[in-house]
């Protein structure tokens, strides 16, 4: 009788610890995502108010940013710069990241594929500012020769096409949109590669044999037949990677540099994230407001891409 009671006591005690322990884990888990709601709420409440104060949505999306003495203004050049650099960076990131992912996912038995996999694993965790500094260093070395031998003559050849071409192609400044896009693509490559690799690695062996059997050349088997099996995962990876690089700031600090005017992409280029970084640290209310507005716009772009990726995936 006493023995039974003792067992019951322990059980009750253990149940209490059980619920307390599980409750603690749940609390900690919830604590990890609560800031997300606080941040999104803060950005939208202050951001929408700021956009209204600075002249409404259309003005905000197209006009130049406010100087400290302006009443209204927007983030037009920043939006254009962000979209341009993100699109270029994402294209380049997928163009290199996808084949790389196929390599480290499909050729796992090769020694060099494992070296490449280790490289990708390192690069995905790399501090983004280091990537920006790297592109800056390459750019400052390459700029002069590049302008002299390649871009100078090229822009002369292309000049009959009209003035608009100088916005895209021409002798580069030390800071330009292409350097920014290159830095963004280096951040995106390992991201796409890793997800592609794990998707290819999870293809079942019979399916792989079937693909090789009907595909003829290895290229067709890998890139045409098997791609269909993993396309969903790869598209999701591409979208999430794009969402990630759209908001990156550190790699753009020394590559795109930022600007406050609509300017050719061959020179310093504005980006929404760079404007938030700059304007938030000024002492002027109107510029801080425009930083919040820019944050709301940037967050909307990223949330849209993220939700599309989640619904598809």
């Amino acid at each position: 009788m006493t023995v039974k009671r003792k067992v019951e006591n322990i059980t009750a005690e253990r149940m209490v610890i059980n619920w307390l322990g599980l409750g603690l884990f749940a609390l900690l888990g919830v604590a990890a995502v609560v800031p997300l709601f606080l941040i999104i709420g803060d950005v939208y409440i202050k951001g929408i108010d700021a956009i209204n104060r600075l002249g409404g949505l259309w003005v905000f999306l197209t006009e130049l940013p406010p100087t400290p003495f302006d009443e209204r203004g927007g983030i037009g050049p920043m939006l254009v710069g962000t979209l341009y650099m993100t699109a270029l960076g994402a294209l380049l990131g997928i163009a290199v990241g996808f084949p790389l992912g196929v390599y480290i996912g499909e050729m796992r038995r090769e020694k060099f594929a494992n070296v490449a996999r280790a490289g990708v694993n390192v690069l995905v965790e790399f501090p983004t500012i280091v990537v920006g500094l790297f592109v800056y260093a390459v750019m400052s070395l390459a700029k002069e020769n590049l302008n002299q031998y390649l871009l100078g003559p090229l822009s002369k050849v292309l000049s009959p096409l009209g003035g608009w071409i100088t916005w895209f192609i021409g002798p580069l400044d030390g800071f330009n949109a292409y350097a920014g896009a290159a830095a963004l693509s280096i951040i995106m490559i390992p991201y796409v590669a890793l997800i592609t690799a794990s998707a290819y690695a999870s293809i079942e062996q019979p399916l792989r044999e079937a693909a090789y059997a009907i595909g003829g050349r290895e290229f067709n088997a890998l890139f045409v037949v098997l791609r269909k099996a993993v396309s969903r995962a790869v598209v999701t990876a591409a979208l999430l990677g794009t969402a990630k690089i759209a908001g990156e700031t550190a790699p753009l600090l020394f590559t795109a540099f930022g600007n406050t005017y609509y300017a050719p992409f061959t020179g310093p280029t504005a980006a929404a994230s760079l404007w938030i970084w700059y304007a938030a640290q000024t002492p002027y209310d109107v510029q801080i407001a425009s930083a919040y507005g820019a944050a709301a716009v940037l967050l909307t772009i990223i949330l849209t891409i993220f939700i599309i990726a989640r619904i598809r995936g």
Binding site: D42, V43, G247, T249, Y292
Partner: peptide, 24 residues
């Protein structure tokens, strides 16, 4: 849903975290 929220925490631009840290 919860997993997506956690992933979104990782995807959010760092500069927006900075903005929130600065003012809130």
């Amino acid at each position: 849903v919860f997993g997506s929220l956690v992933d979104l925490t990782a995807t959010m631009p760092t500069v927006i975290y900075g903005l929130w840290g600065l003012f809130v």
